[in-house]
């Protein structure tokens, strides 16, 4: 078996302040992350605001050009954004956004928007495109009679279905879903999550599912990586990470997630202080300023991801063995 569909090696993204008068340090949104997504696999990325999870998604899609490290898709390095090869590759990757309102163009019919990918990447006739469009609408649970309607005629959940249909119109191999259900009511969330799970199974999609909602990731994904301030804190199969969270940050995150069932609740660990600024991250372990297990040596080197418990479960904490 060859390498996974998407491979990121020590990928890095710094945003420099823009403009002639701009001052200050660059913001390192993603700082040396390794990630792979195999064909048909769903990888969850969890973390809070400023963890760099959305940036990582755009790096893997090639929408942003990494300022360090490399991303390979299907064995090939990602081409430069905007080049012909890059544009051709768009047909094989899709993205679903968080905001069901801002991600659709209010002034074009939904049919025209979902059709865009086909019009750009195929030579199909209008009738053939229409046939594929109808099929895609049925697949995501929308009425194909409404191809000519405008986005404002649809509810939030239906719009997310439209966003999914648009991303999947060219039958891509890889889908990045950036908080696709965070803006939806819980009753609608479950429908959309179910649809994504079905599509992934039926189409053999590789998926990167970005979310701050850990229970959803647990249901939808095979593996998960937990990010904090641009770095991976912990990664592994969802069952293992959720059953035995081993990085202090993962534990704090899980313990903070409100749970219906009192039996599932972990002892609440409130993180002290405020998240550090990404322009000036702490030395060594970036989590150490808020970690109750921190020691002076945590400030010295960036802790590498090490195997913990099993080969697939890895934790970036030098004290993982002591504290677990």
């Amino acid at each position: 078996m060859s390498e996974p569909l998407v491979v990121a090696e020590q990928v890095e993204m710094s945003f420099a302040p823009r403009g002639i008068l701009a001052r200050g340090r660059p913001v390192r949104a993603v700082a040396g992350v390794d990630a792979t997504v195999a064909r048909g696999e769903a990888l969850g990325v969890v973390g809070e605001s400023g963890s760099g999870k959305s940036t990582l998604g755009r790096l893997l899609l090639g929408l942003l050009a990494a300022t360090g490290g490399a991303v390979r898709f299907d064995g090939q390095a990602l081409p430069k954004p905007g080049s012909a090869a890059w544009r051709a590759l768009r047909a094989r990757m899709g993205i679903v956004f968080q905001d069901p309102f801002g991600s659709l163009d209010a002034r074009r019919t939904i049919g025209a928007q979902v059709e865009d990918g086909l019009a750009i990447h195929t030579n199909l006739s209008a009738a053939e495109r229409r046939a594929q469009l109808t099929e895609m609408f049925v697949r995501v649970g929308l009425d194909p009679q409404r191809l000519g309607a405008y986005p404002h005629e649809f509810s939030g959940g239906q719009r997310q279905r439209l966003g999914i249909a648009r991303a999947l119109a060219t039958n891509p191999d890889f889908l990045v879903a950036d908080e696709p259900v965070s803006a939806l009511d819980v009753s609608i969330q479950a429908q959309v999550v179910k649809l994504l799970a079905e599509l992934r199974r039926d189409l053999g999609l590789a998926m990167l599912f970005i979310s701050h909602d850990l229970p959803v990731v647990r249901h939808l994904c095979d593996r998960v990586i937990v990010m904090y301030l641009g770095r991976v804190m912990e990664e592994g199969p969802v069952a293992e990470v959720f059953a035995r969270p081993s990085h202090p940050y993962t534990r704090a995150l899980l313990s903070a997630t409100p749970m219906l069932d009192p039996a599932r609740r972990l002892t609440r660990e409130i993180l002290p202080g405020e998240p550090p600024s990404p322009t000036n991250p702490p030395s060594g372990c970036v989590f150490r300023t808020r970690c109750r297990h921190a020691r002076p040596e945590c400030a010295e080197t960036v802790p590498p991801l090490r195997e913990f418990g099993s080969a697939a479960h890895r934790v970036a904490c030098i004290r993982a063995d002591e504290i677990n």
Partner: peptide, 19 residues
């Protein structure tokens, strides 16, 4: 986002601008 979405579909710049 919807402009980013069309860009992510690989549309050429003239298409993004005009459509």
């Amino acid at each position: 986002d919807f402009v980013e979405a069309v860009r992510a579909l690989g549309a050429r710049t003239p298409r993004i601008l005009l459509r």
